[in-house]
Lab assay of single mutants.
Amino acid sequence: MTTFKLIINGKTLKGEITIEAVDAAEAEKIFKQYANDNGIDGEWTYDDATKTDTVTE
């Protein structure tokens, strides 16, 4: 398992969460579901060097 981080730069929700996932694709799926569940819809970027997804509304 690898640690992945999501940075949220939303209009109403800001912060970050960290998860353990098998790979980047699994982490992205989990993060996008989390964002959807919390009403966050924005531009996504991924930095492989830091294993960090960022969503900005």
Score class of each variant (00 low, 15 high):
Asp37Thr: 06
Asp47Thr: 09
Thr52Ala: 05
Val55Cys: 10
Asp37Arg: 07
Asn36His: 14
Thr50Tyr: 07
Asn9Ala: 07
Ile8Gly: 00
Gly10Lys: 03
Trp44Lys: 01
Ala24Asn: 06
Asn36Lys: 15
Glu57Thr: 09
Ile30Asp: 00
Lys51Ala: 07
Met1His: 07
Met1Lys: 14
Gly39Glu: 04
Leu13Arg: 04
Leu13Ile: 13
Lys11Pro: 07
Lys32Gln: 08
Gln33Lys: 12
Trp44Tyr: 03
Glu57Val: 12
Tyr34Phe: 11
Lys51Pro: 04
Phe4Asp: 01
Asp47Leu: 08
Ile40Gln: 02
Thr12Val: 11
Ile19Met: 02
Lys11Tyr: 12
Trp44Cys: 08
Glu16Ala: 07
Leu6Val: 06
Lys14Gln: 10
Glu20Thr: 11
Phe31Tyr: 01
Gly39Ile: 03
Ile7Glu: 01
Asp53Phe: 15
Val22His: 11
Ile17Gln: 00
Asn36Ile: 14
Gly39Cys: 13
Glu28Asp: 09
Asp41His: 13
Lys11Leu: 14
Val22Tyr: 12
Thr56Arg: 06
Lys32Trp: 09
Asp53Trp: 15
Ala25His: 09
Thr12Arg: 07
Thr50Lys: 06
Leu13Pro: 01
Lys14Met: 09
Asp23Met: 04
Ile7Trp: 06
Gly10Thr: 14
Ala21Cys: 14
Lys51Phe: 10
Thr50Gly: 06
Tyr34Ser: 00
Val22Ser: 09
Asp41Leu: 12
Leu13Phe: 15
Ala27Val: 08
Ile30Lys: 04
Val22Phe: 11
Gly39Leu: 05
Ala24Tyr: 15
Lys14Arg: 11
Lys29His: 05
Thr45Met: 07
Ile17Trp: 12
Thr50Pro: 03
Gly10Leu: 14
Thr50Asn: 07
Asp37Met: 12
Glu57Asp: 06
Glu43Asp: 10
Thr12Cys: 15
Thr54Ala: 05
Gly10Tyr: 11
Ala25Ser: 09
Glu16Lys: 07
Glu57Gln: 09
Phe31Met: 06
Leu6Met: 08
Asn38Ala: 11
Tyr34Ile: 09
Glu57Lys: 04
Asp53Leu: 15
Gly39Tyr: 06
Ala21Asn: 03
Leu6Glu: 01
Leu6Ile: 08
Ile40Trp: 07
Glu28Phe: 15
Lys51Tyr: 08
Ala25Met: 10
Gly15Asp: 07
Val55Leu: 11
Gly10Trp: 14
Ile40Cys: 12
Asn38Val: 11
Gly15Cys: 15
Asn38Tyr: 12
Asp37Asn: 07
Gly10Asn: 03
Thr12His: 13
Met1Cys: 15
Ala35Met: 13
Ala21Asp: 01
Ala35Arg: 05
Asn9Ile: 13
Gly10Val: 11
Lys32Ser: 04
Ala35Trp: 08
Tyr34Leu: 07
Thr3Ile: 13
Lys51Gln: 11
Tyr46Trp: 12
Thr56Phe: 07
Ala24His: 15
Ile19Cys: 15
Ile19Pro: 00
Tyr46Gly: 02
Gly15Ser: 10
Trp44Pro: 01
Glu16Pro: 02
Thr56Ile: 06
Phe4Lys: 01
Thr52Phe: 07
Gly42Ala: 04
Val22Leu: 11
Ala25Thr: 09
Gly15Leu: 15
Val55Glu: 05
Asn36Pro: 01
Thr52Asn: 03
Ile17Glu: 00
Lys5Arg: 11
Trp44Leu: 02
Thr45Ser: 11
Glu26Asp: 07
Ile19Phe: 05
Lys51Glu: 03
Gln33Trp: 08
Lys11Cys: 15
Gln33Gly: 03
Asp37His: 05
Gln33Ala: 10
Asp23Ser: 12
Ile7Gln: 02
Asn9Gln: 08
Lys29Gln: 09
Gly15Trp: 15
Ile30His: 03
Leu13Asn: 05
Glu57His: 07
Glu26Val: 05
Ile17Thr: 00
Thr54Trp: 08
Leu6Lys: 00
Thr12Lys: 10
Glu26Trp: 08
Ile8Asn: 00
Val55Phe: 06
Ile17Tyr: 10
Asp37Glu: 12
Ala49Asp: 10
Asp41Ser: 12
Asp23Lys: 02
Ala21Leu: 08
Lys51Ile: 04
Ile40Tyr: 03
Met1Gly: 05
Asp48Glu: 13
Glu28Asn: 11
Ala21Glu: 02
Leu13Glu: 04
Ala27His: 00
Glu28Gln: 14
Leu6His: 01
Val22Asn: 07
Thr18Ile: 12
Asp37Pro: 02
Lys5Ser: 03
Asn38Lys: 08
Ala35Cys: 15
Gly42Leu: 09
Asn36Gly: 07
Thr54Ser: 05
Ala21Thr: 03
Ala21Ile: 07
Gln33Pro: 00
Glu16Leu: 09
Ala49Val: 11
Lys51Asn: 11
Ile17Pro: 00
Glu20Gly: 03
Lys5Leu: 09
Gly15Tyr: 15
Ile17Ser: 00
Gly42Met: 08
Asn38Gly: 03
Ala21Tyr: 11
Ala24Met: 10
Ile7Leu: 03
Gly10Met: 14
Thr45Pro: 03
Asp48Gln: 10
Lys5Cys: 15
Tyr34Gln: 00
Glu43Cys: 14
Tyr34Trp: 15
Lys5Pro: 02
Glu28Trp: 14
Ile40Asn: 02
Asp53Val: 15
Asp23Tyr: 07
Ile30Cys: 13
Lys5Ile: 13
Ile19Ser: 00
Asp47Ala: 07
Val22Lys: 12
Lys32Asn: 05
Phe31Pro: 00
Tyr34Glu: 01
Thr3Asp: 01
Val55Pro: 06
Glu43Gly: 04
Asp48Trp: 12
Gly10Glu: 01
Glu28Thr: 10
Ile7Gly: 00
Glu20Val: 15
Tyr46Glu: 02
Ile40Ala: 02
Asp48Thr: 10
Leu6Gly: 01
Gly39Ala: 06
Ala35Thr: 08
Glu26Thr: 11
Met1Tyr: 11
Trp44His: 02
Thr54Met: 09
Ile8Ala: 00
Ile8Trp: 14
Thr2Leu: 14
Gly39His: 08
Glu20Arg: 13
Ala27Ser: 01
Thr52Met: 04
Thr52Arg: 09
Asn9Pro: 02
Val22Glu: 05
Ile7Ala: 01
Asn38Asp: 02
Asn9Glu: 05
Tyr34Cys: 11
Thr52Val: 08
Leu6Ser: 00
Thr52Glu: 05
Asp53Gln: 15
Phe31Cys: 05
Glu57Ile: 13
Glu43Ile: 13
Tyr46Cys: 14
Lys32Ala: 08
Ile30Thr: 03
Ile19His: 00
Ile7Asn: 01
Asn36Trp: 14
Lys32Glu: 01
Thr50Cys: 14
Ile19Val: 09
Thr18Asp: 02
Thr3Lys: 12
Lys14Cys: 15
Glu57Met: 10
Asp53Ala: 15
Glu28Ile: 14
Glu26Cys: 11
Val55His: 04
Thr45Arg: 08
Gly39Asn: 09
Lys29Glu: 05
Ala35Lys: 02
Glu57Pro: 06
Asp53Thr: 15
Thr12Tyr: 14
Phe31Lys: 00
Thr18Phe: 12
Tyr46Lys: 03
Thr45His: 12
Val22Gly: 03
Lys14Ser: 08
Leu6Pro: 00
Ile40Leu: 06
Lys14Asn: 04
Lys29Cys: 13
Asn9Met: 11
Lys5Asp: 01
Asp23Trp: 14
Ala25Lys: 10
Val22Asp: 02
Thr45Phe: 11
Lys11Ile: 14
Thr45Asp: 06
Asn9Val: 12
Ala27Gly: 01
Tyr34Ala: 00
Met1Asp: 01
Thr54Asn: 04
Glu26Phe: 05
Gly15Ile: 15
Lys29Met: 10
Thr56Tyr: 07
Thr18His: 08
Glu26Tyr: 07
Asp41Phe: 14
Ala24Lys: 13
Lys51Trp: 08
Asp47Val: 09
Glu20Ala: 06
Gly39Val: 02
Ile40Met: 03
Met1Leu: 14
Ala27Cys: 13
Lys5His: 08
Ala25Leu: 11
Lys11Phe: 13
Lys11Val: 13
Thr50Ser: 10
Thr50Phe: 06
Asp23Phe: 09
Thr56Gln: 05
Asp53Ile: 15
Lys29Leu: 09
Thr2Gly: 04
Thr50Gln: 06
Ile8Lys: 00
Glu16Gly: 04
Trp44Ala: 01
Lys11Asp: 06
Gly15Thr: 14
Ala27Ile: 05
Asp53Cys: 15
Asn9Lys: 09
Ala25Gln: 12
Phe4Cys: 11
Asn38His: 14
Tyr34Gly: 01
Gly39Asp: 06
Asn36Tyr: 14
